[in-house]
Design a protein around this nucleic acid. Structure first.
Lengths: 309, 309
DNA sequence: ATGAGGGCATAAGCTGGGTTTATGAGCGAT
DNA sequence: ATCGCTCATAAACCCAGCTTATGCCCTCAT
């Protein structure tokens, strides 16, 4: 079946209405340093280039961002707001960079990490940025896969530290719980459940056909276990290959789903999805794991310590 | 005093290691449509342009993202991960776009919003994106200022809907609580408090000199009120002009501060800051406000309904 | 089999945004 | 006055990314 999309078609390319990353970084530098020239030097361009870049950004946005004076430049009120929004874009880009850098890391990296998809996707980039603050220059390589693949890598000595979500520690490994992941029942805002007042009962949830990832996913295991005593999970409404596909289907109103809160944070904040309270505990542990008896040392130890509150 | 920065100097420009927004959007389109050519059409370029753009992105990242075949293109495993990180960058860019678009909105917009800085910064862009889903084409203008300025605008009939955080509803206005904002005690990970096990007592917090925004900020009011019964707030360690400046000082280890959880979410996730539990309730209401007796209608009503869980 | 159609790659040429260098002008401190 | 900082303007340049034109590969239907 083709992608069931609804009403986000007629949107002109974002890149024409949002300055590029270089310009946003420059703006942050101006905000921090209080001078176009100094900001230019920091980002490695000349002062006229910075001047023109900021000016063209102001033209693009239709708002004056910086107040120039012969003694320096300060942000306007609007500029301060824009800068804060810009900071969030740059931070997302930094996470992107940290992630992709680890992804292309070679086997001789000083720290080889293996992680489940969910953790690699949502948590690891942040940890890597933090790690860079503590141990600058540490080359990190990342391999993402399911729990079994992570366990294999560790047992084979091809990774120094692993991260998995799930109900138990894989055989042959030691581990420590570093956090929890709550599963959330979500629907599109237009769904009838979004107007409920009472929490969903476990039996109701179990009896409702859901949009789920295909059998074998960690999410589905937890859901199965939690609802075993309530009649068991109904046959899925849809089975899709990726979390992204599931989210897209839910957003478009195809039905309810149960997804990690990590995966739906943005959608909930932007009200593209609504969470429905449910009277059952849907949690799973997030674990750091390593080969039995080999407590993490060096960079692995450092990363591990970062991941615990 | 100059900016006390520590160890994030030798970082080459992000823009050289992260593809531009156009390329990221293209990658998302490829992921969704399963074909370079179709993705190219969607973003308004030709197929060879898309081909070359994806290729140069793969060269930049050093990772194969797309598996080409004569029947279409699918993401590689690494490509799926990269695409998810890219999605977060694009979403941040969309929030940026929604915000700046409102910021330059003229007075004749169909919906004129006035909001406090914190709300304008962290919540409003998401609401505007959601609103665009419900009422496409609605021109929104945004004015950001403190509570008094928001109230003035509404009373003068120059805004249709306002958002403020604070302890009470400004005189002459009606309002509804739409959510809460918790204040968090935060320190740098290197600070001694980060290794505490017991929660902070209110008296301890009150007695400790903090890094705060200048007198008059909403955050400071709430803090003053909450600690009034515990000996009153100690003289500040530092008084800075913007939330950003406060955060930078705390991150660099200058001392503890108390900030909105909205303002420190990213920093906590990336472990640049650590939250210290404290045995006192530090909450303030987030309110939508409007002129007495004039219940919001039309787009204002729609936006209001979006902001309540 | 064989041709049509969809999908991707390559090549050549163009264009424009962003860059640099060079210069000038405003303001403050010495 | 004069230096030293700031930012703006002008002219020349360069390259990333675009388009158009073409070719190859594979699959599917006739």
């Amino acid at each position: 079946m083709s992608d069931p999309r609804s009403a986000d078609e007629p949107r002109s390319p974002l890149a024409h209405r949002v300055p590029d990353l270089g310009a946003l970084e420059l703006l942050l530098a101006v905000a921090r340093l209080g001078s176009l020239g100094r900001a230019a030097r920091e980002v490695g361009i000349t002062q006229p280039a910075a001047s023109s870049r900021i000016r063209s950004m102001e033209r693009m946005l239709g708002v004056a961002l910086v107040e120039r004076s012969p003694r320096g430049s300060r942000l306007t009120d609007a500029g301060a707001l824009v800068t804060d929004w810009a900071r969030r874009v740059v931070e997302a880009a930094e996470a992107f960079d940290a992630g992709t850098q680890a992804l292309r890391g070679r086997r001789d990296s000083r720290l080889r990490v293996a992680a489940s998809m969910t953790i690699a996707e949502y948590l690891l980039p942040g940890w890597l940025i933090a790690l860079r603050g503590l141990l600058p220059g540490t080359a990190v390589s990342l391999l993402a896969g399911n729990s079994a693949a992570v366990a294999d890598r560790l047992r084979a000595g091809e990774a120094d530290l692993g991260f998995v979500e799930g109900l138990d520690v894989p055989a042959g490994l030691d581990g420590a719980v570093i956090g929890h992941d709550r599963l959330a029942v979500v629907v599109a805002p237009s769904h009838a459940w979004a107007r409920r007042r009472a929490p969903l009962s476990p039996a109701e949830l179990a009896a409702t056909p859901l949009i789920l990832r295909e059998r074998g996913s960690g999410t589905r295991q937890v859901l199965d276990a939690a609802l075993a005593g309530h009649g068991g999970l109904a046959a899925p409404l849809l089975e899709l290959a990726s979390t992204t596909a599931v989210k897209a289907a839910v957003v478009s109103g195809a039905g309810p789903s149960v997804l990690s809160e990590l995966a739906v944070g943005e959608e909930l904040a932007a009200r593209r999805l609504v969470e429905i309270p449910v009277a059952v505990r849907l949690r799973r542990d997030l674990r750091a794991v390593w080969p039995l008896g080999q407590r993490p040392a060096g960079p692995a130890r450092e990363l591990l310590s970062l991941t615990r509150g």
